[in-house]
Design a binder for these strands. Structure first.
Length: 609
RNA sequence: GGGGCGGUAGUUGAGUUGGUUACAACAUCGGCCUGUCACGCCGAAGGUCGCGGGUUCGAGUCCCGUCCGCCCCGCCA
């Protein structure tokens, strides 16, 4: 135990002292952010999570302390006792960039708690160190201002969430992390059970079924800031363990859930960002999103809308363009995006767009430059297309002189995906969203009317688009068996600046409807009982109508902090390969540990470089 | 499962057609400096060019394999 600590308590943090404190004796503790040694004056910027304070060592104050100060180095953790003095009166100048910039602490006593080896990264706001080095040295990385601020904001958001949902009558209840393994959907992390040889838990993908059962238990309004685990491939915005603001409500319709979420998000924006959002948020149907933006989470802060041309061109039987004709004959989609003339691109730049299309798996990029009178140039279709078809296309996409029309042909899913990628690519290139200020910089909207099922190409079956407990829309129940592909769901996603930050639905509370949905999913009685028997059982005893939603907390924090990766808002994140460079996890475990949990590894031994 | 980019002092980068002792900035270390706050000045040290193999008189550079990081498609009910 340090003598210094037993005699002194920290009196202030490094961001509070001002001229109002002149003459006070204070105790500060923190890290050495930087050093400036002038021989007879030794300056140290002392840093803690709150800010910086300059401390100064002067030989006339204390010869010995001044001499010791020469030994100090960056990132040492120290404590000091000293007197608040006026920088200007001391013959220096104030630093207007610091809250504490008008004062400095004349050091009377110095305590070194712990020296620091030379840090492998610089502790500065703007570093260009590779992410690999940063993750390997995460403790030092986390000392940096931007990450410290990200976690402050994350804390504010979590607290605003608790306060708001508490005020709205929600109960915060925890659910298990070790849960029943259910195949289908996201891949589960699997945990062997030592006490039950050959059996396994899964780590919870989400508290979905538990929260529904809370409703059946009568808790009425539940929320949780819940850890979730999914063993899928990682992305910049996907980590294998992540956090959801999870909520569920009884006796509600879509607009009730959406209203709660809108008020919650508005409160988060107000408390964390001091931004007043306008309520309610816009609503767009899934079909509309896909047609106009090629995405179920479009960024609505800019245009670059798409137009489906399949029917337009079919009216002209391909308009004399053999490729159009063969595309139509194959039953494929033709879609275009108009790039207005103010977004100027050279030939080389449009060629680069085509490279992007090919990287995404597209065959190529159809183009047409629109001239006077709607004539096309720089286009493989220009010479053969009929005037009528060309004009109809121009009209359909609202083309004006100087515009560029980009075409995609093929399966709808891929056509949408590629044009959506081009749209976001061009928006980035021309900085369409980045330059927006104030409220214009934020776009929130609901996407509604999702299909209840998706067609799974692998199995040929229908699979639940959201999850199998999502309620079909009213009047659609009869189509569940006859035409499942046409059934819309009572599901809704919340989109922020082109990111899906939340999703939810009104659930099925009627076991007859639930049975039909399982039928449409081609699920046998044994299968439903084995997987979801506990839920079906609960549905038999007075299940209330209910619905809810989950917000991806990490993603929300990422967007609000302006971070470009989830890794900057999760304290100890995983790399794209799912490893933790700080601790080295995951690691092999020895065979006797495996034996204890009754499993045997089939992995081949890896040799590390 | 697939496509793309990258790995060179502690850190970030440069390194030509394969050719002396692999270069710069910042950081580090030593010295000087009484008003700095991107302090300044003088000096020094610092390298298994991710790893393994091959071609060659000679490889950071060319070829093959492999490991690692990042971005994207698939995947993520």
């Amino acid at each position: 135990m340090s003598e210094f600590l037993s005699q002194h308590k920290r009196s202030h943090n490094c961001n509070t002292l001002t001229k109002a404190d002149l003459g006070r004796e204070v105790i500060l503790m923190g890290w050495i952010d930087s050093l400036r040694d002038h021989g007879g004056r030794r300056f140290v910027d002392l840093r803690d999570r709150y800010g910086l304070t300059q401390i100064v060592f002067k030989p006339e104050t204390d010869e010995a302390q001044h001499a010791r100060a020469q030994e100090l180095r960056n990132e040492w953790c120290i404590g000091i006792r000293g007197v608040v003095e006026d920088r200007t009166a001391n013959g220096g100048s104030a630093n207007p960039r610091l809250t504490t910039g008008e004062i400095e602490i004349n050091v009377l006593e110095l305590e070194v708690f712990n020296k620091s080896a030379v840090p492998p990264l610089q502790i500065e706001d703007n570093i260009d160190t590779s992410e690999e080095k940063r993750l390997q040295n995460r403790v030092l990385d986390l000392r940096r201002g931007p990450l410290q601020r990200n976690f402050h904001l994350r804390h504010r958001i979590a607290q605003a969430t608790r306060a708001q949902l508490d005020e709205e009558g929600f109960l915060e209840i925890e659910t298990p992390i070790l849960v029943k393994y259910t195949p289908g959907g996201a891949r589960n992390f699997v945990v062997p059970s030592r006490l039950n040889p050959g059996s396994f838990y899964a780590l919870a993908e989400s508290p979905q079924l538990y929260k529904q059962m809370f409703m059946m238990a009568g808790f009425d309004r539940y929320f949780q800031i819940a850890k979730c685990f999914r063993d899928e491939d990682l992305r910049g915005d996907r980590q294998p363990e992540f956090t959801q603001i999870d909520l569920e409500m009884s006796f509600v319709q879509e607009e009730d859930v959406q209203g709660v979420v809108e008020r919650l998000v508005a409160r988060i924006f107000k408390e964390a960002m001091n931004i007043d959002l306008q309520l309610p948020f816009k609503r767009m149907s899934y079909a509309d999103c896909m047609a106009r933006y090629g995405s179920d989470k479009p960024d609505l802060r800019y245009g670059l809308e798409h137009t489906i041309l399949t029917n337009v061109i079919a009216d002209f039987d391909g308009g004399g363009v053999p490729f159009f004709k063969s595309t139509l004959d194959d039953g494929l989609m033709i879609k275009a995006m108009r790039v207005p003339s103010e977004y100027k691109m050279s030939r080389a730049e449009t060629d680069k767009l085509e490279d992007l299309v090919k990287q995404l798996g597209g065959a190529g990029l159809g183009r047409a430059k629109v001239g006077d009178d709607g004539a096309w140039s720089q286009s493989p279709f220009a010479k053969v297309i009929s005037d009528e078809c060309r004009l109809a296309i121009n009209q359909a996409v609202s083309a004006e002189t100087g515009d560029l029309i980009l075409f995609q042909f093929g399966k709808p899913k891929q056509v949408h995906m590629i044009l959506a990628a081009l749209r976001t690519h061009l928006a980035k290139k021309f900085e369409l969203a980045k330059t927006l200020k104030g409220n214009d910089a934020w776009s929130l909207h609901w996407v509604t009317d999702f299909p209840l099922f998706e067609h799974d190409e692998e199995s040929g079956n229908h699979v639940a688009a959201h999850h199998p407990f999502t309620s079909p829309q009213k009047g659609h129940e009869d189509n569940l068996v006859s035409d499942p592909g046409s059934v819309l769901a009572r599901a809704y996603d919340l989109v922020l600046n082109g990111n899906e930050i939340g999703g939810g639905s009104i659930r099925i509370h009627d076991d007859q409807v639930q049975a039909k949905v399982f039928d449409a999913l081609a699920m046998s009685d044994e299968e439903k009982q084995a997987k979801f028997g506990f839920l079906l059982e609960a549905l038999r005893y007075g299940a209330p109508p209910h619905g809810g939603l989950a917000i991806g907390l990490d993603r929300l924090v990422m967007i609000l902090t302006g971070a470009t990766s989830l890794r900057d808002v999760i304290a100890y994140p995983k790399t794209q390969r799912g490893t933790d460079l700080l601790t080295g996890a995951p690691t092999p475990v020895d065979t006797h540990q495996l034996k204890e949990v009754h499993i045997l590894s089939t992995a081949e031994k890896k040799t590390n470089a």
